[in-house]
């Protein structure tokens, strides 16, 4: 029996991996087949000349450029809010928190990670309405609110990955800095964080993907169907996930639906580019660590 299990388990593991790989290939292939025909200059720039559109000299109507700019701005802003807060909280949990504090905070962050995004969106919307009524009428759903709500959504990923990456460092590495005279802060900054960087980077990559795909949060906090390229943090904006949702729900003909697939392909490309950027920054940090004084 045990021998049979010993043969079956690797087979099952291989089968599962292959199924997953096949699913990914199928989705990517399907998107390519359906979306590629729609991918042309008009899909992105509409009738506006590309250079004038890219330099923001002329507005783009009927093209995805505002949604592309909106998505990139949204993801970059959300991750920029979430990284410092998330990494700092992860460091606190791994390096400073007492057992009691951990016992209280660990489940709290787990619950936060499990919050449905529509609830986070609703919370962001409610806070904005409250601030609008009681503090400033200038505050309304906009890019800033969406990015803050998304940051709140992805914070648990960054906190958890930072905490785990630090906690899993072996004692020998943990003691290297102090053995050479490093203070606790120096040890965290100069030894532990650089060693934990790959783990933290995987949390950031997860966060990027989550920010780029989320529709529920942005629907309630500032994304609209037609707003043009966002000019400030307080502008409403267009975003690719919202466009994909909108088109797939409201399309009138196959050509219009194909633009949704095209938008999905562009969204995937943006995600890949942002993942690449995250890897590149990580490599850069590694190189800096190696740099000669």
């Amino acid at each position: 029996m045990r021998r049979r299990m010993g043969k079956l388990l690797p087979l099952f593991a291989w089968g599962s991996t292959l199924t997953l790989l096949a699913a990914i290939m199928t989705i990517a292939g399907y998107l390519l087949v359906e979306g590629m025909p729609a991918l042309d200059r008009t899909l992105i720039f509409g009738d506006t000349p590309p250079l004038a559109a890219l330099l923001l000299r002329r507005p783009v109507f009927g093209g995805l450029l505002p949604a592309i700019f909106g998505t990139i701005a949204l993801v970059v802003l959300a991750v920029a809010w979430a990284i410092p807060l998330g990494v700092a909280s992860g460091i606190y949990l791994a390096e400073y928190a007492t057992t009691t504090a951990k016992r209280l905070l660990d489940p709290a962050f787990d619950i936060l990670a499990g919050l449905p995004s529509i609830v986070v969106g609703l919370f962001g919307f409610a806070v904005t309405v409250f601030l609008n009524r009681h503090f400033s009428a200038a505050l309304h759903p906009c890019l800033l609110v969406s990015s803050l709500a998304l940051a709140f959504l992805v914070l648990p990923y960054i906190i958890r990955t930072t905490q785990t990456a630090l906690e899993e460092l072996p004692p020998a590495i943990r003691m290297t800095g102090p053995a050479l005279g490093a203070s606790r802060l120096q040890n965290i900054r100069m030894v532990l964080l650089p060693q934990a960087l790959p783990g933290i980077a995987s949390g950031v990559i997860l966060a990027i993907g989550r920010c780029a795909e989320d529709t529920a949060v942005i629907m309630l906090t500032g994304a609209v169907a037609a707003a043009g390229v966002p000019r400030s943090l307080l502008s409403q904006y267009e975003a690719l996930p919202f466009y994909i949702y909108y088109i797939s729900a409201q399309y009138t003909d196959a050509k219009e639906l194909a633009t949704g697939y095209g938008a999905a392909l562009i969204l995937l490309a943006i995600c890949l580019a942002l993942f690449g950027l995250a890897f590149w920054i990580r490599k850069g940090l590694d190189r800096r660590a190696l740099a000669h004084f």
Binding site: T176, H292, F293
Partner: peptide, 12 residues
Amino acid sequence: LPMSIFKNVAFP
């Protein structure tokens, strides 16, 4: 440490 030979020795 995952840094250069020089920086490792100069670290303290």
